[in-house]
């Protein structure tokens, strides 16, 4: 519950900051993601206060969407997050993205690989439908191989059924 409230706050915050970003295109850092964490509290280039930074993308836009059991359909909440991701990607064309699809552990290994691919593809299709060039996006499935949370309860499973948009700097090939 708290999680989804945070999401809404992030989205609201995003609308303001995106407008800001649009006026100041190019004025922020080049988005070296690892360096950005240190500046997370402030407004320094590459930090969370920098709307062009990967940290901003990960933390404010939201780098992941969650799925129901055995599903790859995008919930309204997921669609909101992805719409924001698309806007960010359009505003920051120097980034490409690898979309990782994941499953929880309640399934066979092979099926979960295929399910993770379905989820990653659903995200990719949505981003493309929002104008992100397909060439900037790639997908990969990890099936159930990379759980984020490790308990064997729905509290963890719901966080593991995810698709994560991982940015990398550099032009699409």
């Amino acid at each position: 519950m708290t999680k989804s409230i945070f999401r809404r706050v992030h989205v609201a915050l995003l609308i303001g900051t995106l407008a800001l970003a649009a006026c100041s295109q190019g004025g922020f850092g080049n988005g070296d993601s690892a360096a950005g964490v240190a500046g997370a509290a402030g407004a320094g280039a590459g930090g969370i206060g920098d709307p062009t930074s990967p940290v901003y993308f990960n933390e404010v836009v939201g780098d992941r969407v969650l799925f129901a059991v055995d599903q790859s359909t995008l919930s309204p909440e997921a669609q909101n997050t992805l719409a924001s991701q698309a806007q960010w990607l359009l505003a920051n064309p120097e980034f490409t993205a690898l979309i990782e699809g994941h499953a929880d552990e309640q399934g066979t290994r092979e099926y979960n690989l295929a399910l993770g691919a379905r989820r990653a593809a659903a995200v990719r299709e949505y981003l493309v439908s929002r104008g992100v060039p397909d060439a900037r996006l790639r997908t990969i499935s990890y099936g159930k191989e990379r759980p984020l949370q490790i308990c064997s309860d729905e509290a963890c499973y719901s966080q593991n059924r995810r698709a994560v948009t991982v940015l990398s700097a550099g032009l699409a090939s």
Partner: peptide, 24 residues
Amino acid sequence: MTFSPRFSPSGQTVVFSLEESGNT
């Protein structure tokens, strides 16, 4: 993505799954 391979009994063929645009 390609995965879930298996040989035919003769060893001359391999069957496997191939994923394209999310469909396997």
